[in-house]
Design a binder for these strands. Structure first.
Lengths: 159, 159
DNA sequence: TATTGTTATACTCTATAACTATA
DNA sequence: TATAGTTATAGAGTATAACAATA
């Protein structure tokens, strides 16, 4: 058995540079994703919006009257999975399901004033969380990261 | 309601540049992570190792005789969550739980010859999947991405 | 026939708490 | 008291399949 170190920083060195995993984008992406997600939840606190619920609210505010089917497509999830998210936002009175004249299958998602206000405030909190978490990255590093993540994300379309 | 486009590429433009979400690292990280994970599973196929099982095997091969507690620490998950992963790898005969003389609480994880061979072959497949998925990124872009992901990942330590 | 929203259901990943056997 | 491995359990997040209402 390898001896375990005592201090945080030494333990860090021991447990981190450790195998081929370190050279794989997927593994590092997962660890970084988990770190951001965890910090997001901590920043928004108990009772705050989850990342996916925040994302849905963002799109409803940007696209009032969007349908659930279109929203699910934008988020890259199934229609069925969106129901609980919209239930949550409706329970918070951040949006309402509204009947659309002309097609009675659709229920347009309309953000409330409270929803728009809550979204604005939450966005500020989220941006602060990202600024804090990414403080070690320069502005140009952040730009590069975004650009590369988008490039990878787009490959998912070609399936 | 916004009119829906017909072709894939037009739909793409419509559903993608859409809100503040595009400016958030967390959202883009999630989408990129999902894309990589999906491609990883497709590359390894039905019955192939899952990303987390592959990660565990990688560390066991790199650190023969590691304990489950130390492995869980390295992977950033709980001991209890590792049990099913090790059960899976043991069922595949890729490793064995071995009693350690001197401390009968510990069961050292020892990779089998088959496990080492399977790991080597799988690593090649995984690297091919990443090369394919990241073909649009230059070598220096890939290096930058890895470096930035590691920087973000490290912030998770300070909790 | 196709689409929208919905429900039922299941699977993966993860965490917390409690247990046992050791130390 | 503390640690290693384990079990039970629950909670996210996601997907598939089927359904009713509507087009």
């Amino acid at each position: 058995m390898a001896p375990r170190t005592v201090t945080k920083s030494l333990e860090f060195e021991m447990t981190d540079v450790v195998s081929d995993l370190e050279t794989l984008v997927g593994y590092n992406m997962k660890r970084a994703y988990v770190a951001i997600q965890k910090d997001f939840r901590a920043a928004l606190g108990e009772g705050g919006l989850s990342p996916r619920t925040f994302s849905a609210l963002s799109l409803v505010v940007a696209h009032p009257n969007i349908s659930q089917s279109d929203l699910a497509r934008m988020l890259g999830i199934e229609r069925s999975g969106l129901v609980a998210i919209i239930d949550d936002l409706e329970a918070r009175k951040f949006l309402s399901r509204t009947l659309v004249p002309g097609d009675r299958r659709v229920q347009a998602l309309v953000p409330t004033k409270a929803g728009i206000a809550a979204y604005g405030a939450t966005l500020v909190t989220v941006q602060a969380h990202e600024d804090r978490l990414l403080a070690d990255l320069s502005t140009s590093e952040k730009d590069t990261l975004m650009q590369l993540l988008m490039k990878i994300r787009l490959t998912d379309r070609e399936s």
